[in-house]
Nucleic acid binder design. Structure first.
Lengths: 354, 354
DNA sequence: CTGAAAGCGCTTACAG
DNA sequence: CTGAAAGCGCTTACAG
């Protein structure tokens, strides 16, 4: 139907994809008609539609998303900002976002800020320039102000699993850390523990601040001593997440402590590895997939209604007791003697192989 | 300098960011001049530059990347396609890509294809429409044709860690799987193993095909029997990657086998967890960060020179012997009796907690 | 039902 | 050194 040479001429170097103009010319219609066909909008006569479709197939025409985005004031891209792509928790979060999105669209940009303030700001700049439709923040550095900058630029933002923002324009869905820490503290108290220690990541990140505060409150409520700067006297280690817990488990055992006989260890997130027989980590199960799905739902609603995402939601957690927590008795040897928890950056990448 | 109301008017609803036109008007210059200032191109008189800069700061102007991309025929975005975001191997790969990129630019889109042919095609379509500058493929389904489609559309592609393509326009950097499997086979042979089994992911993916073939060749060279469909008689399990190895370690021990006394288990990738004292997995160390860095370097060079990425490179690996492999003797109980390796999808997400 | 025209926000020769 | 104009590839009222 369309001379082969015309088509070939279009893409002789493989670098000049067909445009709507090419398709219109080859099909003998106007660009508006082609546009109507590809968008399925308005009614186009059957014969014209068929002709256009044929040319599209032959030329392998694909609408240029850049031009469309410029015209439509929307890019069909959302960003998921993680602290640490090595943590499977974020994989689950991303899966939840995918679930909430309709097939293939919009495209999700997963970007790793490493919770580094400079990187966060650079990323924020880039996302604003690119005019992403929305941003889901998986974690951010303490007191990071960039979510508000995004909001200033009309981009809806939802914090997923990293607390709430002081800015009312920022939505949030998070685990109920206060409840979770009470569960942990009650569990440890029942096992006889009276002095515990919290192990967070090396960097300052909002989610860890939040959990640290929650454990402080819960411990105080039970009359348990919480060691924050050093583990002296502690018989249990409460970790910000599973990755940190698993690292500390390793460090403790290499230093000669027995888990759980000497020291109990608790994680957070209940990542799949926690259930591994050799690890068997007591951890807090929170539904990361649901977290992602809810955050995405909020974002998509905000985008559709051209407003900020402002909802705030809290998800209940469940304590999964496994083999790293056990009873302790008064007078039992406790931590101290120079041992320090491994305040690792909770990226698997930073851990040096032994 | 610029009346406050003018600025406020620009962004009254927080949804109309300043454009180059606004800046030009407020600074009393032409759009060309503003463009010259933001791009740092050509010389602009100091006073004009200062005026423009001031207005940019006051209005919080950020050039619209969509418009720029449309004009410049480049988006400053590259995509990294992974099989499985839950595998820390890809986090390392991504880190390598980041390392090779100059600060903050270009933006990397990390997309998970799940090695599902339909998802791969949808993703490919989306990336072409969005005119990404280049694509790094972390893994893909067996015989996936989409890299060639990307190349057809003038997008340079590099396969990172998943073999080479039959298409000469596709670049590749990969681990030397043949060498690695020889290392493994030699190690097992020396320990007395004569029958082994390969455990891959449930899905068909190129990297696993490649490793399966490599282990077949290596086993044949040593006169070792390789069981492919069932593990009967095997005393060692060679796994496609660490995640699969760790899952099988769990499954074996839950089924009552002792590792390494009854069965030896070998992983691939040497992810950080392999070095954990409780896991202590014998694995093949390959530098995933280097893999990402090299792939990115190839892609950036190709983009800059407006050509395909065609280089092919092989990285040597090293066998790290740990506690999951041990000696076996003839007559020793072996696998079989209905036990099957866990051919898990190697995403941590799919594993059901026990 | 169809097409000519304007415009999204930039950049890039090209006059002046 | 500076600005007017054209154009990147689309979509969207609006005539006909």
């Amino acid at each position: 139907m369309v001379p082969r040479e015309w088509i070939d001429a279009l893409r002789s170097d493989g670098r000049s994809p067909a445009t709507i103009k090419d398709v219109a010319r080859l099909a003998g219609v106007s660009r508006s008609t082609v546009s109507n066909v590809i968008r399925g909008s308005s009614t186009v006569a059957d014969d014209l539609r068929a002709r256009v479709m044929a040319v599209i197939a032959e030329t392998n025409y694909r609408p240029d998303a850049r031009a469309r985005a410029l015209r439509e004031r929307t890019t069909g891209m959302i960003a998921l900002i993680t602290a640490d792509t090595g943590n499977p928790f974020y994989a689950s979060l991303g899966l939840g976002v995918e679930e909430a999105a309709t097939l293939g669209e919009p495209l999700m940009i997963v970007a790793n800020s490493h919770c580094d303030p400079a990187a966060e700001l650079a990323l924020c700049d880039s996302l604003i320039s690119r005019r992403v439709d929305g941003v889901i923040v998986g974690d951010l550095s303490s007191n990071a102000g960039y979510p508000s900058i995004l909001a200033d630029n009309g981009i809806p933002v939802v914090l997923a699993g990293c607390g709430v923002s002081g800015d009312p324009r920022i939505g949030a869905v998070d685990t109920d850390d206060e409840q979770a820490m009470e569960l942990i503290i009650d569990h440890l108290f029942a096992l006889g523990h009276r002095t515990v220690c919290f192990a967070g990541p090396v960097d300052q990140r909002a989610a860890a601040d939040r959990r640290r505060l929650a454990v402080r409150t819960a411990a105080a409520g039970r009359g348990i001593v919480l060691q924050e700067d050093h583990p002296d006297g502690a018989t249990a280690l409460i970790c910000h997440n599973d990755l940190i817990a698993i690292d500390n488990l390793d460090a403790l055992e290499r230093a000669g402590w027995l888990v759980p006989d000497d020291v109990s260890v608790v994680g957070f997130d209940d990542t799949p590895l926690a259930a591994h027989r050799r690890i068997s980590l007591t951890s807090v199960r929170c539904d990361a997939v649901a977290l992602g799905r809810i955050a995405a739902t909020q974002i998509f609603a905000a985008i559709a209604e051209r407003r900020h995402a402002t909802e705030r939601q809290l998800l209940e957690c469940e304590l999964v007791v496994r083999g790293t927590t056990g009873p302790t008795t008064p007078g039992h040897p406790s931590l101290g003697a120079g041992w320090r928890p491994v305040h690792v950056l909770d990226t698997a990448l930073e851990r040096t192989p032994h």
